[in-house]
């Protein structure tokens, strides 16, 4: 069933500023979709609304038929922990934890830390960080830090991955590597990927693109 957004709108601030208006969008399970548009077009806001990180001012988002707006905070937390993964432009790694501990963090929430250790180890190997598991974020390069963040987003084997400019702060080589990892996980597990990017090359690598401008969908 996937994700369905109906009449989605978002107004923020005082005085009120509309940053998203009447967005209707359906994303099938297993799809790889790129949300594109210029800076300020509303693509990140849309991604946050689809991933339940933010609440819409108007309209609704449903995930596999369940209206996310109707879920309580605990249920939403459980959804984000067990079914969704997030990657942001900045890695947001916890400075006091090693790469391995950062990757394993989502599993701690659901009491699966022990069960997910092997998966965390494999993911770090997959993203090219074998042997660097014990390093703190400050002991890793920018590209390595972002790869740890990707591994963290994947450790719970989410059905949906939301990536907001995941390569935005990286050079092209590191950016390509991140995309390879996401595509690989998408093709192997059928994970749904929703990616917000203003990078044309990255956007073109997605089978489907949704273009936004001034808070509205301009083309699909």
């Amino acid at each position: 069933m996937g994700i369905v957004a109906e009449g989605l709108g978002k107004v923020v601030g005082n005085p009120a500023t509309r940053i998203l208006a009447d967005v209707n969008l359906g994303i099938e399970r297993g799809e790889f979709v790129a949300l594109t548009g210029r800076s300020g077009s509303g693509k990140s806001t849309l991604l946050h609304l689809l991933g339940s990180l933010d609440r819409p001012s108007e309209g609704r988002v449903s995930l596999d038929g369940v209206d996310l707006g109707g879920l309580g905070a605990r249920d939403l937390d459980a959804y984000r922990n067990l079914r969704m993964g997030f990657v942001f432009q900045f890695h947001y790694l916890i400075a006091e934890l090693s790469a391995f501990e950062n990757v394993l963090l989502p599993a701690r929430k659901s009491g699966q830390a022990k069960a997910r250790r092997a998966r965390a180890q494999n993911l770090l190997k997959q993203v090219g960080l074998e042997g660097k598991e014990g390093r703190l974020p400050r002991q890793l390069s920018g590209g390595e830090q972002q790869r740890v963040a990707v591994a963290r987003a994947l450790v719970m084997e989410p059905e949906y991955l939301f990536a907001d400019e995941p390569t935005g702060a990286l050079d092209s080589a590191n950016g390509a590597r991140i995309m390879e990892i996401l595509k690989d996980e998408h093709s192997r597990r059928g994970m749904t990927v929703v990616l917000a990017t203003h990078d044309r090359d990255i956007a073109h690598s997605a089978p489907r693109q949704v273009r936004l401008a001034d808070g509205k969908i301009e083309g699909v």
């Binding site: 991933g51 990180l53 905070a73 605990r74 937390d77 459980a78 959804y79 984000r80 922990n81 067990l82 997030f86 942001f88 900045f90 947001y92 790694l93 916890i94 963090l105 989502p106 929430k109 659901s110 963290r152």
Partner: peptide, 13 residues
């Protein structure tokens, strides 16, 4: 930032 990422991972209030 830590709090924000923890919340995005499903850690609650």
């Amino acid at each position: 930032k830590d709090i924000a990422i923890l919340r995005s991972m499903g850690f609650g209030f």
